[in-house]
Nucleic acid binder design. Structure first.
Lengths: 258, 258
DNA sequence: CACCCCATTCCACATCATGGAATGGATGCC
DNA sequence: GGCATCCATTCCATGATGTGGAATGGGGTG
């Protein structure tokens, strides 16, 4: 080979190729053969085999009984070590978001069937939310949760809420599947999600999903309904959308086929 | 350079080195400088820099404002894609464990403050547990949970249970911190953990931690107290220990310093 | 202000990755 | 059951490519 491909991501060739192999495996719907990986990664079969052998000896891929290959457990370790980085990366963005809106800014991800807060920046107001990082809440009754659900295929949403149920927290909590689905449609239409005291009376929360993040993710601001008025909505949504876009860039170094 | 190191993990040199760099970063307590990574990974600074530049352009590492390096968000993606593999890998081991004990075999990991069941193999008995994969339970009241807690530093255990609380499920549920800590000590001493109807009346569960797994992990068998008798304990523990050791090998391709 | 440490870049060298071809085993088709 | 095909794996000659020492430059400290 040796075509002159313009703008091939520069760097150590074999390392770039090794990650192309990993990404090909990650994209494959099931365990993949060498030939399969080779064609997905656009590499010579013998090169692919050598890279797979190297990765396998390191534990980053593994070989199944029928000579196919799959991602290996060592990646789980690296992934779990990298996860806290997301909060660090998001820090400055949340800070800016808090500065712009003067409300508490949150970053949350879908974890299993619950939504986990992974980072936050508290507003300077004294009256503010108190959602420590690490807390998990039900998606149907939170702004971030609904923002995340709005990005999922409807079937996955219904399966999820049937597993979790839709317990009522306040008078406004959505407790029927149809009400939730309608709310999600409305969220998609206008581009943001509102939680209007559905989790806790008097607390309003505006949330926007972060597209392209490694796991389903959303940002939000939350505060007393009195402060987060309809009048302040446009500015808040603007700030949230900007924040979501920045997070998309920062977190979304998605190693999928692009 | 060019020492003759015996048994250097074979494979494509630069790929092996790239992962040494990633592992060095994963081990570093905080963001690391090039020199730092170079010494941890035992590579020339210029080589280290080139590899970091390559990894950074791919999103697997990132550079902080102060020219230090950290793991990047792309690893989160690969890690989350690799996670389901753990259940696949564990499958045959759980199968063997079920065959040996004739009880339902479970694999669970610590996920946040809860314990998540990630794989199971149901026993053929009709009277059996019904814990679908994906279910999350509180650690203080489950065999797998206590087995996992027993591997954590005591401070982390107390912080965790203070966050989750220790709700009572049955008369036997441990509801005081001191009772739990004593139980964990006893577990460590004898090498396995018992949940004797603490989650559900009449259900007994024997669990053993899987050392060296990417995330805190335990295996267990569970069934009616009548079947899991004291007499059958030694054989069950034997089978569980074997299973845990096999899982350690399979999952524990720990890319940490060896 | 001077020194040093460190990140980054450069470059000549030969090591090392490369991919085509060869091998052998498995699977499917006739 | 035998043949053909496909595919994983190994081998090897070739030169492209990774390597590390040295040079450069910026930042911080004494």
């Amino acid at each position: 080979m040796g075509w002159v491909v313009p703008q091939e991501p520069s760097g150590v060739q074999s390392v770039v190729r090794a990650f192309r192999v990993l990404e090909a495996l990650a994209d494959a719907p099931t365990d993949a053969t060498v030939a399969d990986v080779a064609s997905r990664a656009e590499l010579a079969p013998s090169t692919t085999h050598r890279l797979l052998a190297t990765l396998t000896s390191l534990g980053y891929t593994r070989q199944t009984d029928d000579r196919r290959y799959a991602l290996g457990p060592a990646l789980i370790t690296l992934g779990s070590r990298a996860t806290p980085q997301a909060a660090v990366i998001a820090g400055p963005v949340l800070e800016e978001l808090e500065r712009a809106t003067e409300e508490t800014a949150n970053l949350a991800v879908l974890d299993g069937d619950l939504v986990a807060y992974v980072a936050q920046r508290a507003s300077r107001h004294h009256m503010r939310m108190f959602t420590e990082a690490g807390r998990r809440v039900l998606p149907h009754a939170s702004g971030v949760g609904k923002a995340i659900l709005a990005t999922l295929p409807q079937q996955r949403v219904t399966e999820l809420v049937r597993r979790t149920g839709m317990p009522r927290f306040t008078d406004s909590t959505l407790t029927s599947e149809s009400a939730l689905l309608a709310d999600l449609r409305e969220s998609r239409r206008r581009g943001f999600t509102i939680d209007d005291g559905e989790q806790e009376v008097g607390v309003r929360c505006i949330a926007v999903a972060v597209p392209g993040a490694p796991v389903p993710t959303a940002v939000s601001i939350s505060g007393p309904a009195a402060r987060i008025s309809d009048a302040s909505l446009p500015a808040a949504v603007e700030a949230l959308t900007t924040a979501a876009a920045r997070l998309s860039d920062l977190l979304g170094a998605s190693p999928s086929r692009g």
